[in-house]
């Protein structure tokens, strides 16, 4: 059980950590000052949530580890985030499409985890849920604004959604880890969130005059450590200091 919870927390923590790192790349490059600030604020929330999740995971590891050790001293195959979050930012439309797909999912997940039987996970979820409400609203507003905006903004956001769609399926996968923890009342099945997520997507896309991509084959692998080539590049950037000066403290 402890091993399952450890891996489950890594999955959650790594999703937030890697997406937070990605969003941080927008710092100083946002399309408008307000968006520069918004994306980096969201990045900060995600990295904060990830710190709490990884700290908790580290306390369950066979040899206790700190959140920093888990973030900076693991290699790509040991990261258990979905591929979606490690994809390059591309343009602003792509970043927003990913942010909407991810926030709509994570917001639903945290709402469920707020009633987890695990006290610490429940506390982290309750805290994070307040922040996710704002993330979800932010990305949803932008999907509508871009989709129902000019012909150019509509085409760009539709193109981004079509490109990224194949990476959305991995969010709703379950394996024996989720099944075991759900039976114990600690976690919930990702597949159980799909219907509600689809309602959110349909509702938003209707308002934004966008089309939901057709059913298709979904990319998979990140949750078991099989990543795209992009993760290695993120880690070489993110982990540079600890690799070059092991144990160095700020």
């Amino acid at each position: 059980m402890q091993d399952s919870l450890y891996k489950y927390l890594l999955r959650l923590g790594d999703n937030s950590l890697i997406l937070g790192q990605r969003l941080g790349e927008w710092c100083g490059h946002g399309p408008a000052l307000e968006e520069d600030i918004a994306l980096t604020n969201i990045a900060l929330d995600l990295i904060g949530q990830s710190t709490q999740l990884l700290e908790y995971a580290g306390s369950l590891a066979p040899e206790k580890k700190s959140a920093d050790e888990l973030a900076f001293l693991r290699d790509a195959p040991e990261f258990l985030n979905v591929i979606l979050v490690e994809l390059p930012n591309e343009d602003y439309a792509f970043t927003i499409a990913r942010q909407f797909i991810f926030s709509a999912y994570l917001d639903l997940l945290y709402l469920k985890l707020m009633s987890s039987k695990d006290i610490q996970l429940r506390a982290i979820a309750a805290k994070s849920s307040k922040e996710l409400g704002y993330h979800y609203k932010h990305s949803r507003d932008w999907i509508v604004r871009l989709g129902d905006g000019t012909e150019l903004s509509h085409d760009k956001i539709q193109h981004a959604i079509n490109t990224i769609w194949t990476y959305s399926g991995e969010l709703f996968e379950d394996d024996k880890i989720e099944v075991e923890l759900t039976e114990k009342g600690i976690a919930c099945l990702n597949s159980g969130l799909l219907a509600e997520w689809k309602v959110r997507v349909e509702d938003c896309f209707n308002e934004a005059t966008l089309t939901i991509p057709e059913e298709q084959w979904m990319q998979t692998g990140g949750r078991t450590g099989k990543h795209s080539e992009h993760l290695g590049f993120i880690l070489s950037d993110m982990q540079f200091l600890q690799r070059a000066y092991p144990g160095n403290e700020w």
């Binding site: 307000e34 600030i37 918004a38 604020n41």
Partner: peptide, 13 residues
């Protein structure tokens, strides 16, 4: 409101 996010995590603009 100009933006949900402001100069610090706790503020909107």
């Amino acid at each position: 409101m100009v933006s949900q996010f402001g100069s610090t995590a706790c503020k909107a603009l």
